[in-house]
């Protein structure tokens, strides 16, 4: 079906005469406003979830892909020598920007959640960790492992792939769920508005009969209902979107301890995305009401 966008605008602009012919129906007006408002409110959160999890997936993916860890487990008398050898190997490896052995304090902090703050780390045979930061396209992990095996026998390279992938997959799945929620919200809005439009058409059966009697075409009759429901959905969704954005603004700001949940929200240009919700709700209402009206008018004859 060829769709002309100017016809959509004509229809929303509407025919005041056609609009007057249909008396206002309070119940369906309130139902449409409430549905559009509530769905827009939920849509703001679904959108925020999608965008936040998208950012999270990208960040985890990027950050973890750029770092890796070398763990050296060597007898005490060889530990320093192997550490030096490992750093030398790493510094001469293309794609490695920085190789920094973690200090005793840093290693203690890593173990603090399990062993407490007073852990005598110097007296324990704890492996030495080296943080590796990559540059460019990164290093050749297979080649580096081979060199380390030859020159630093106690070294184990962990490029984070093992636990990075499930995390990124989980974040991506959350992002997909956010989009799915948006689709479901749009479908629910369409269903509710269809029901409201059908109720309005049924309540105005006499009006429709009279308009038909005097030669009104189906599209003329449908237009009065379509315009009304489209504008109601637009205004309801605008209210719901404003409320949703305010609620997002009132969420606690993101911090390190808050982690993922406090990061739910919009950043930068993403704040403009909710602006798309009211027109999309209006478009959903337009097509849902038009389909319902034309179907009902066909069935009524």
């Amino acid at each position: 079906m060829k769709f002309d966008i100017t016809r959509l605008f004509d229809l929303v602009a509407g025919d005041p005469q056609a609009d007057r012919a249909v008396p206002p129906t309070g119940f369906t007006a309130r139902l449409t406003l409430f549905t559009a408002g509530a769905m827009a409110f939920l849509a703001v959160f679904a959108l925020a979830l999608s965008l936040a999890t998208g950012r999270l997936a990208d960040r985890w993916s990027a950050e973890l892909a750029r770092t890796s860890t070398l763990r050296i487990s060597a007898p005490a008398d060889q530990a320093d020598a192997q550490l030096l050898a490992a750093v030398e190997v790493l510094q001469t490896t293309p794609g490695v920007a920085q190789a920094r052995p973690l200090t005793a304090d840093e290693q203690r902090k890593l173990l603090e959640p399990w062993f407490g703050p007073e852990l005598p780390i110097e007296d324990l045979p704890i492996p030495q960790l080296i943080e590796i930061i990559e540059e460019g396209d990164g290093y050749d992990a297979t080649g580096l492992r081979a060199r380390l095996q030859a020159e630093v026998p106690g070294a184990v390279l962990d490029d984070h792939t093992r636990w990075r992938e499930p995390l990124v997959a989980a974040a991506n799945r959350l992002r997909s769920l956010g989009w799915l929620a948006l689709v479901l919200i749009a479908a629910s809005t369409a269903a509710m508005i269809t029901l409201a439009a059908q109720a309005a058409l049924a309540a105005n059966a006499q009006v429709i009969r009279v308009m038909r009697l005097v030669g009104a075409r189906d599209i003329y009759i449908a237009r009065a209902f379509v315009r009304r429901f489209t504008l109601r959905a637009l205004s309801g969704a605008a209210i719901g979107t404003v409320a949703g954005v305010l609620a997002i603004l009132l969420l606690p700001s993101a911090d390190v301890a808050g982690g993922f949940l406090t990061g739910l929200g919009f950043q930068g240009a993403h704040w403009f995305w909710p602006l798309a919700i009211p027109p999309l709700a209006a478009a959903v209402a337009f097509f849902a009401t038009r389909a319902a009206a034309l179907k009902t008018l066909r069935e009524q004859s």
Partner: peptide, 25 residues
């Protein structure tokens, strides 16, 4: 088709016993 019937009705004036008006106008 339905549009053609509507056009035909514009050439036929109908007066019902119960009149059938839009009572809010």
């Amino acid at each position: 088709d339905r549009d053609a019937v509507a056009m035909a009705r514009r050439r036929i004036g109908v007066v019902h016993q119960d009149c059938q008006f839009l009572d809010h106008l």
